[in-house]
């Protein structure tokens, strides 16, 4: 059975007028059906307003379906008795690191989660040490979070989730406010957690370059899933991605433009190295 099972999910937002009547409806998700296997690294790509954040919040039971069903590890998010368990299994990291930090010291920040779910004190400290190790922030254990860089703060936020031993981490544009160094740090941490700890990663982003190394890329537009495949296949749809307001990797774009003008290049070029290798063959 898949870790996350989404069946015909609809989500509507309502706008109310001053007397409390519904003045407008927006369908943020329309008939989304997906299943995500445990241990995969999945990227969800889409521009603002495409529904990708709404989808993420359903997996964490922050939103409940207007119609349809979401199962996390077999548990229905609609059943109130499941909510706490679901949030423990599927932890969430948000865009702005400053909005998530609550403690004065990094180790307390990381301990907050396990403390809340009633882990015995001694084990809390073990988990804190272990989680900080996994995100490479051990050296900052006694630091104040507000003196950390954006990338470091996000890694502390991730450690805070890891300390609850979840099966899955959902990240909603975790790098949107970071510089290139911070972005690389966070991405590397996520791939390590996925490979070594087999934690399922669901990365919501609009940076296409962050999705190239994912196992699977889901592209959303206007509340629907429009592409869902391995990165190589997804990025072969250059025109479609661009018309949906998304970028494609530069090497992919170059190969696409050159092919259109008659050069013989293979399908599915993603990296600069692949492009250079393919182009060299034409120069021989």
């Amino acid at each position: 059975m898949a870790l996350i099972d989404i069946h015909h999910l609809f989500h509507s937002f309502y706008r109310y007028n001053e007397s409390g009547e519904v003045a407008g409806t927006k369908e943020a998700l329309r008939d989304v059906t997906l299943s995500i296997e445990a241990g995969t690294f999945v990227a969800v790509l889409g521009h603002n307003g495409s529904g990708k954040s709404t989808l993420a919040k359903h997996i964490n039971a922050l939103f409940l379906p207007s119609k349809g069903q979401v199962l996390v590890d077999g548990r229905d998010t609609k059943d109130a008795a499941n909510v706490l368990l679901i949030r423990r299994e599927a932890g969430m990291v948000f865009q702005n690191p400053d909005n998530q930090m609550i403690a004065n010291v990094v180790e307390e920040e990381v301990a907050f989660g396990p403390e809340n779910i009633g882990v015995p004190t001694e084990e809390i400290w073990e988990r804190v040490a272990d989680s900080l190790e996994r995100v490479g922030m051990t050296a900052y254990r006694m630091h104040s979070p507000d003196r950390l860089s954006g990338g470091q703060k996000q890694r502390v936020a991730i450690a805070g989730i890891v300390s609850m031993k979840p099966q899955c981490i959902i990240l909603d544009e975790p790098t949107a406010m970071l510089d290139p160094v911070g972005r690389r740090e966070v991405l590397r941490t996520l791939h390590e957690l996925n490979e070594k700890e087999k934690i399922t990663i669901l990365l919501i982003t609009h940076h296409m370059d962050e999705t190239i190394d994912a196992d699977r890329v889901i592209v959303m537009d206007d509340g629907e899933v429009v592409l869902d495949d391995v990165p190589r296949e997804v990025f072969a749809h250059v025109d479609e991605l661009r018309s949906r307001g998304l970028d494609v990797p530069v090497p992919t774009q170059l190969a696409y433009e050159l092919k259109k003008r008659g050069l013989e290049l293979p399908e599915g070029i993603l990296s600069e190295e692949e492009f250079v290798d393919a182009y060299m063959k034409l120069c021989k």
Partner: peptide, 15 residues
Amino acid sequence: PSTVRIFSMLRERGV
């Protein structure tokens, strides 16, 4: 930028 890196890789390989 990615394009600059691609040209520098190609030049390194003698193109």
